[in-house]
Computed example of a mutant assay.
Amino acid sequence: MGTSWSLQAVSPPAATAHGVQAALDIVVEQMSQWETESDLSRFNRAEPGLWHAVPGELAHVVEAALAIARASDGAFDAGLGRLTDAWGFGSGGPVGHVPDIAGDATNRTIDFDPATRSVRRSHAAALDLSGIAKGYGVDLAAEWLLDTGVRHFLLEVGGELRGEGIRPDGQPWWVDVEMPPTSSVPPWRIALHDLSVATSGNYRRGFDVGGRRYSHSFDPKTGRPIVSNVSSVTVLHRACVMADGWATALTVLGPQAAVALADAQGLAACIVAGDREFISRAWREMLG
């Protein structure tokens, strides 16, 4: 995944680190754009328009991604792989220039059949789960920990976190939300008790051409990097896969639209745009 992971746990067994790494390795083996023999990479090389059976973990993430896509009216798009590659944010590496590529969303579709656990893509689409797979990796490793009897832990993978139970001193797992470096908004401190948190930072990756900054966050409707002033979105959810995916989707929208959608979906979300902060109803209720 190109990142690190860390775990704080109460009385973990000796093989805990190996188990967590094994769970994360499953995500890489199935969903990595950078591993040429991952299930995702092989699916993207296979003939479009045909159904292809995929492993259970990959099927679960595709189903979650498509559910968020439907609920967000396309703000999340699991078929952006060709566009992210063309703009230098995929497996091909940086390009440093604005590509000459059409962003027609009507020809870019990913379909999933839950009965057969199969996926198909249109010719213009390539599966890209970088906006949700890391959160699923947190969940997969967390569920392994719970299954082995570890009940109290804080697991972090590349800035996405899930806290279960409490610390040995009886306190919840407290974490601070990182704010964009250009913003004066003070950071939130969150108690992760059986809860996950994910932050999508629009300032983290991108490149500059002709005095303009191009972000790695894409608007699926235009097929281009987003132009809103949203710099980061943080979402709290029981499942880290949903927190991760929804943070990605809300980043695409402007702050008012993102809060409205978060309220409609009952999501606890905090959107930072410049030096302004917009919080959803569920986030506000958690403050009480």
Rank of each mutant, 00 (worst) to 15 (best):
N44K: 03
W188K: 09
L161Q: 08
L287M: 14
R213P: 08
A105C: 08
P225N: 07
L195Q: 15
A125P: 02
S41Q: 04
M242T: 03
D219P: 10
G170K: 07
A15Y: 02
M179T: 14
S32V: 10
P94D: 02
D100E: 13
L127V: 00
R167D: 06
A142E: 03
M242A: 14
T222L: 13
Q30P: 15
I279E: 10
A262W: 02
A105I: 05
V95W: 09
D25A: 13
G210K: 13
T251Y: 04
S4F: 09
W173C: 12
E156M: 05
G245T: 07
M31P: 06
F89P: 03
V62C: 08
D128F: 06
R224S: 05
R162T: 10
R45I: 00
T36Y: 13
G149E: 06
L261I: 07
T182V: 14
D104C: 12
V233G: 12
D113Y: 14
G135C: 08
L261W: 05
G90K: 06
D275F: 10
V119Q: 04
D100L: 13
L192K: 09
I101F: 06
R42T: 01
P225H: 15
I110N: 04
T16K: 02
I101Q: 09
S11Q: 15
L261K: 12
H193M: 13
E156V: 01
L236I: 03
G165D: 02
F153P: 13
R205C: 01
H193R: 15
P220C: 15
A249N: 12
D169P: 06
T16A: 14
L267D: 00
G158E: 01
V233M: 14
W246D: 02
G93Q: 03
A247L: 12
L80Q: 07
E178F: 05
P186K: 05
A239H: 04
P48G: 03
A71S: 12
Q171H: 13
L192N: 05
R120S: 01
I68A: 04
L154Q: 09
V10T: 11
D85E: 15
R281N: 11
L58M: 12
F89E: 01
S183E: 13
E277G: 09
W174G: 00
T222N: 08
A243H: 11
S32P: 05
R167L: 07
V233P: 07
V20S: 00
P94N: 02
D39G: 11
L236Q: 07
S122K: 08
C240R: 03
L50R: 15
G274N: 11
